[in-house]
């Protein structure tokens, strides 16, 4: 595929991706921070639905021999420490590397600073990579996947995990319907409650006679 075709395809897929991130409200900083504050679960609902559909899609594509999986290598140390930093950054940014662009598109001003910080973070890693590489590769396990570990084909296990996630999502919806988490402004925020209980209304006094 030429670079131009790839770019046009990427742009088309990105537009769909961004449209769905906005419609699902998962791009809202209040939803993302709210997920990590464990008060709003819209992010988990979108995320697990995406994983479940991905499992079905990849089970079908690999089961029919149409595609091959491309999992990342298992690097326990780098996955754990990088993941911790990534999570801390997502909480501070109120965005992840994809949703920050949806925030820019929707109009949030601070997202431009998240993007700038992200580009510099990626550049810092690029310069540091030669010295970090041996440490990142430590305890590397190659492309380890659950189906290989269990010694079963990918597609039945993928469908089973997808079915399990479906049940989890069903349970979440029963526990708390997603609309209850949307918020008045569709930003995942509950209505503001005054910090102190409202003062009692002033006692009515008889008006002094004129």
């Amino acid at each position: 595929m030429t670079v131009l075709t790839a770019v046009l395809l990427g742009l088309a897929m990105g537009i769909v991706f961004g449209f769905l991130l906005e419609k699902s409200r998962v791009f809202e900083p209040g939803v993302i921070l709210g997920q990590f504050q464990l008060r709003n679960f819209l992010m988990l609902r979108v995320f697990l639905s995406g994983v479940a559909m991905g499992l079905v899609v990849l089970s079908a594509l690999t089961g029919f021999g149409l595609a091959q999986l491309a999992p990342k290598a298992t690097l326990p140390l780098a996955d754990a420490l990088g993941g911790l930093l990534l999570g801390a950054g997502i909480a501070l940014a109120g965005a992840c590397p994809g949703t920050v662009m949806a925030q820019i598109g929707a109009g949030y001003r601070d997202a431009w600073f998240t993007l700038l910080g992200g580009l510099l973070g990626a550049l810092a890693f690029t310069y540091a990579e030669p010295s970090l590489a041996p440490w990142i590769a430590a305890a590397g396990q190659g492309k380890l996947t659950l189906d290989a570990v269990l010694g079963v084909p990918f597609w039945p296990l993928g469908l089973a995990v997808a079915a399990l996630l479906f049940l989890v999502l069903l349970g979440m919806e029963r526990w708390r319907p997603w609309r209850a988490e949307l918020g008045e402004a569709a930003d995942g925020l509950p209505p503001e409650t005054p910090s102190a209980p409202p003062a009692a209304p002033p006692a009515t006094r008889p008006m002094p006679a004129e």
């Binding site: 990088g82 801390a88 950054g89 997502i90 909480a91 601070d110 600073f113 998240t114 910080g117 890693f125």
Partner: peptide
């Protein structure tokens, strides 16, 4: 805070070789 968050986020994502996506 957004700038610092973005920096840490991408540094972590590159160490882990991937992000939320």
């Amino acid at each position: 805070m957004a700038f610092a968050g973005g920096f840490v986020m991408l540094l972590g994502a590159r160490i882990a070789d991937g992000c939320t996506s």
